[in-house]
Design a protein around this nucleic acid. Structure first.
Lengths: 163, 163
DNA sequence: TGTGAAATCGATCCTTA
DNA sequence: TAAGGATCGATTTCACA
């Protein structure tokens, strides 16, 4: 896992196509990569089973579904012991407004992506996070204004290159 | 646009399901929401045409596809005039390693998600960004260590609530 | 907007190479 | 691993409510 020595050029083409258009039919995918549908399907199933493909998701316009503000929130914890991290990570799962959480090295501990209806909603949620005894030290908020580049997938090279 | 007054409960169910499992067949989706396949398909097409569904993407394990490091990079620009922003945003499109870019308010101007093979790759890319006369003032890097919550979509409520 | 029927097309399995 | 063919299921369109 977490490597790619088993991915040949065909697997990489499959990944590029499905990253871009996850609802392609197996037949359409097969013809784009010049493979028979049966062989193509077997490869897709294998990529799923290996955990290389982890899911398929529709990308929605957040502002169409009750989201008024998207926030990037930097969190530092008061302490970095494993149990303090576990305590904080418990909140992450329990809070639907936190849609993505990354544990990072550097000046901060966590970077969160949070969606709320409006500023009042964020004020309340922020107070719950800070005042909730989860070990949160500081909270720095950035409000998304626009998105010059939307995430649609990772670049997948033709072939593996170590450099 | 950027609102949701036209989404009824059925649309919201469709969005929830497709956000979670984009490769559901139309028939399976229809039976989950207790609608006929033809009516279901018409709704999905409408959601796509309205731009509420913006795409469908396979989610890959980045570390399986040449990514050695995922970085969150905070950028401040030297100036905030529209042409300075445009100059910087030009680099974003031209740089495949930058997989996501958000223009934010607050202490920083942009928050980037960047994928690189290794530290050396990042060193080179960083030097290109700072030294490339794109108006980049400061660059702060956070290295992703782990992801306690992976983005799989936004919470879509049963019904629209203003509060 | 939704349903149901009909025709076409696609997914999937199995056999053979 | 891949291809081809058979079978079964899904998509899509259309007439009607």
């Amino acid at each position: 896992m977490a490597n790619d020595y088993s991915l040949d050029r065909i697997d990489r083409k499959i990944l590029r196509h499905l990253q871009d258009e996850a609802r392609l039919t197996n037949q359409a995918l097969a013809s784009r990569i010049a493979l028979s549908p049966s062989a193509c399907l077997a490869r897709v199933r294998r990529l799923e089973a290996l955990g290389i493909i982890q899911g398929y998701h529709a990308r929605l316009d957040p502002f169409c579904v009750d989201v008024g503000l998207v926030l990037f929130v930097e969190i530092t914890l008061e302490g970095r012991a494993p149990d303090e991290q576990a305590r904080f990570e418990g909140v992450l799962s329990a809070t639907p407004e936190i849609v993505e959480a990354s544990h990072v090295s550097g000046r901060i501990d966590y970077l969160l992506k949070i969606v709320v209806r409006n500023m009042q909603h964020w004020t309340e949620l922020r107070e719950a996070l800070v005042g909730g005894d989860y070990g949160v030290g500081s909270v720095t908020t950035h409000v998304l204004m626009d998105k010059p580049k939307v995430f649609k997938g990772y670049p997948v090279a033709e072939r593996h290159a170590d450099r």
